[in-house]
Structures are given as structure tokens and as C-alpha cells.
Design a protein around this nucleic acid. Sequence first.
DNA 1: AATAGTGTGTACTATGTAGTACACATGACG
DNA 2: CGTCATGTGTACTACATAGTACACACTATT
Lengths: 122, 122
Amino acid sequence: MYYVVHMTFGKYIRDHRETLKKIDRRFSVRQVANRIGVEPAYLSKIERDEVAPPSEAKIRALAIELDKDEDMLLAMAGKVSSDLLEIIRKRPELFADLIRQLKSMPDHAILRISRDVRDGEW
Amino acid sequence: MYYVVHMTFGKYIRDHRETLKKIDRRFSVRQVANRIGVEPAYLSKIERDEVAPPSEAKIRALAIELDKDEDMLLAMAGKVSSDLLEIIRKRPELFADLIRQLKSMPDHAILRISRDVRDGEW
DNA sequence: AATAGTGTGTACTATGTAGTACACATGACG
DNA sequence: CGTCATGTGTACTACATAGTACACACTATT
């Protein structure tokens, strides 16, 4: 999935909204804009990357609307979920060290730690 | 260390700068401000919490100046280091899951994971 | 007593963030 | 063939962020 790297936030939203629109006409710019609570002209500009991605709250609404992962969409917008920031800010040195350690680790290693923690192997 | 919770960014900086000033007069508001690259009046306002904490770059400079942990100082300012954000944004779902898992884990468990990863037990 | 340094009050500014409001041309469709 | 919906251009706005610049009164030093 090479192309994802070059995909902007706007183009990604447009692509997926258009795909949904093909089978459901309620996915027009106007109707989606209304449902997520912004002006249609604003969503149009977002989708053409004419303006920066919207706020975290609107991105979350978009993620739900388009059935995409919220953290992934936030990341495409250059943001990190505020609940994660809060967790890190409460124990900054601990989390900073761990995250920097994990920077160079492969996906499967991080997944495994997640699973081990969840399964209570600690 | 209860009081730390109620300590503001400004008060924390002021306390530590004043402590250093007692044994080294180069730690005046003016001289520290000059070294970190801001106006003295601005640092004065920061220390009295009259304005919001400064930018990440200035906080880092302050951390070095006062010999404090950068991530901890950033956290007190309500921020998270941009290098950590970048790491998370590159694999948002993986890191989001892990961090939320670790939210309720005790310090020693997180420390142990850090150590295990560093020592290559993966 | 002069002067050098200190902390702070007041006023101002540039840039970024996160949008709204309305008009307009085009396209779909019953 | 009229009207209803669609996407978008233009203009504008409120608030936040991250500071600067200068003047002033006080303190310490020599």
C-alpha cells in the first residue's frame, strides 16, 4: 500500500465519501457536511486540501460517518488523539522512554506487547 | 509528592530558577531570558502564569538551562514532545491501542516493558 | 551618590486555527 | 422544462498562540 504515503487527508476523505456515494446518494458533500456539523463549502475545501484538516471533533465525526479508524484519520491530519496525549502527560518520562524505545521495533513486536498487557501477562 | 499536582508551569520554573539564583547570580530573569532567547518581560509573565507557557522550543531551552527533564516540563505545560507525536502518527492504531492498554498499568510494569525492549528481549 | 542591573506593567503585533455565510453555475430527474 | 440538489468561489470572522518593545520603579554595587 505504497500510495497511502502520498495520500493527503482531503483526498482520502473525498475518495471514501465518493465510494460510499455510488451506492448511497446521502453521501453528497452537502449531506455529509450537515451530518458532521460543518458548512458544505468548508467540507468541499477540506476535501480538495484547500484548507487544513478540521478539528479533532470534526475528524472523529467524519471517521464515524465514513466508518474509518479515528486514530488513523487523526494521524493523516497530523494530529494525535487528545485522550492519548492526556495519558502521556500524566507520566511523561515513563511514556516518552517507552515510545522512543518502540520507534524502531517492528509492528508485530508492538502488537505482542499490547496483547500481553491486555491478557494480563504482567 | 502531592504538591506537584497543584504546581503550575510558571511557579515551577520560578521556584527552580530562584533556587539556582541563590548560588549563581547569572540566574536572574533577564539573563535566563537572554540565554533562552526571549524578552525578560515575557519570561517574567510566564513565571507568574500571567501568560500561557511558551513554545516547545523555548521549554526545551528552559529545561536545559534549569537541568530538568524536557518531557516532564513539556507535560507541565500541557504539551507532548513533537518527536513522540511523530512516532505515534506513523503507526497510529498500533500505538493508540498500546497506550490505552497501559493507561491503567502501574509505573513498574511500564518501566519493565521499556527495559525488556531495550535489552532486546523481543 | 552615581550607575548598573533587576523585575514587571502596558501596549502592540503577526501568524495560525477553525471555521461561517452567501452567491453562483452546473447537473439530475420527475 | 422547471426546480431541486450539488459542488465550489469569495469574503469575512473570532479566538488562540507566541511572542516583541519600551518604559518605569526599585535594588545592589562600587
